[in-house]
Write a protein that binds this DNA or RNA. Structure first.
Lengths: 197, 197, 197, 197
DNA sequence: CATGAATGAGAATTCATTCAT
DNA sequence: AATGAATGAATTCTCATTCAT
């Protein structure tokens, strides 16, 4: 069981980082939101970078775990990909703040950002493995599996992000539903958009 | 004709902002790269935000113009979408720095970021209009055109970004080719990945 | 008998203070080196200042005691001064860390530093008393005994310090020998440097 | 001609550093004493260390220059040493603050402190060269010229420092006279303290 | 006696912006 | 038009000290 204060700080940090981005997030605000003294954060985390990295690592790991857990329920690649699409979108909806951070902070040349990309790359490889397996099993067909994997990641991620932001600022907190987006990605992936007669 | 110095500053600013991101970019460095005094930047631009916004607006407008120019060469939606996919990927490859900024700075709650998203939204609507037209013309078929449009935007954007970063740090400057990525997105969009017997 | 923990803390404190100086020494490091919890130090010492003062007081007292012990073995002032020179240099060599602290922390306007200077002054008076006695006994001759005493203190202290630092950083721990330095100070004090024909 | 503000900052820095020592000196106070904004100091100096080093380098160089200027007025080693003793003491009296800093900050393992010691070492070599020359010319006689040189440096430095501090805190600003101290060091160096019949 | 998590008052440093020249 | 020295508000991080267990 992690120390109680660490959890409180984590919660506050996710919120503030997601609201402001890494650079605009102030340790003062995180401390205030967490209801602890600033020094307490530094007692548990070496630096702002350290806190942020811990946060993101845990977030991406959760995403990967969640995806894996859903994939392993099925054996056929087509079902696995189906499950992954749903898991991905569901996770982004349930972790809107992390989703924002993931895309907003994945670019740049800082070591921490390289580390995120390494983890995201790992996730994309997870997708690619399903695609490869599907090709081997004669279920899928594609010219460039690796590019296809990152395209899927992009499609499923941006469709949620775009929706999150288009609903932002609305008075009533809208309860984002996965259905429409899951349908769209599945249709795209399994069918394409060309009309079949 | 824009003032000569303004162009020099623009060039320097794109480079520095792309390398560092908005917050980590220093006006000092931009001035140094541009070879002008810091005061000169402030003579031409009200503030850092102002410079950055001018930059991004121009960038996104260029993207939209480029896409439109390519689309209007064709009349059938399927050809138009084909052209857009190529234009999008080609533009991102030729404007790597802008591409990074586009995704890295599109998220956040600052007014400037809202402005970017508005422009990106406009671009996505451009895609959606092609999709709608295709549906109307009986060429395309899809349940949620708007979500499909943002998915396409995401797929085509992230596949390039992911490739840019995976080649980063390599010894030899790799000359990114559009072909593989264009093929992938077209295959995804027009065919899906299911094997047809 | 002093409490065991107090001794452990003392040892650690000498080391850390000597390595870093008062301001740069961290209570955390002292605790770590001592292998006790930080709170334990505060259980035994009121404050960092308190710990440091206790340390230095004991150190200077040891120096004075050691000098006195050596002096009282002799009755003639010339022999006593001889003994003091050797004792001083020997003590500094054997207590390099204290020697550094003594000179580095003797200056400044803090109360603790005034206290050190008072003790050093006492030590210099010890020297002066030997000189006065020598003059009275017709063995020594000098115009300003007090200034001569502090000069001797300076000569004997700096010659050792300078040697300690010139050997610092060397690969092999050099075993500093007192002989050369004792010879030098005795020659200076009893003979001066002018060549006698 | 150095920039005016730099000089003002230098003056303020000497004062504050001498009063408080490196670690206790606050950039805030230096800025306030100098009557400039804190940022102005950082516009001219990279860091607190940088400012301090610039200060000390200049100080030690002044000492060395002053000594050299006085030495070169004479040709015989005995006269040169005579001149150096007077110059050293005179300089320390006229630059009390620098004198304090010199001894208080010469010890420690920081790079800056190593740099000071390197410069002080150079000064001691200046003394040694006079001693060597004197030996060669048949005027001086000593077993260990290098140790003798650092002993002289110590004697002449500490006698002044000790006097400075013994007068500190007095109501009336005492005007320290060099005579007594110069006499003492000369007597020590040229004669020793043994009574000649 | 001993502990170590928590604190919060500072301190160094940064950097967008201004403005006199 | 252009400059660059000067500014000071803002921010990260440090660390001696406290205190509940």
């Amino acid at each position: 069981m992690r120390h109680e204060k660490v959890d409180i700080i984590f919660q506050a940090a996710v919120q503030v980082f997601a609201e402001r981005g890494f650079d605009q997030a102030k340790m003062d605000e995180i401390a205030q939101v967490a209801g602890v003294a600033k020094g307490t954060i530094y007692y548990h985390f070496k630096s702002k970078e350290d806190l942020f990295s811990a946060l993101m690592n845990e977030g991406i790991e959760n995403l990967i775990d969640y995806a894996k857990r859903n994939i392993t329920l099925y054996s056929r690649p087509i079902e696995q990909l189906n499950a992954l699409i749903h898991a991905h979108i569901q996770f982004f909806i349930e972790n809107k703040k992390l989703a924002k951070l993931l895309l907003a902070e994945a670019f740049g040349t800082k070591e921490r950002q390289r580390q995120f990309r390494r983890q995201i790359h790992e996730y994309i490889l997870l997708i690619k493995r399903i695609l490869d397996e599907g090709v081997r099993a004669g279920e899928f067909s594609m010219i460039h599996p690796h590019e296809m994997a990152s395209s899927l990641f992009g499609a499923a991620s941006i469709v949620v992000l775009h929706k999150i932001y288009s609903f932002e600022g609305r008075e009533r907190k809208v309860d984002l539903k996965a259905t429409v987006m899951v349908e769209t990605i599945r249709e795209l992936v399994f069918n394409g958009i060309l009309k079949k007669e």
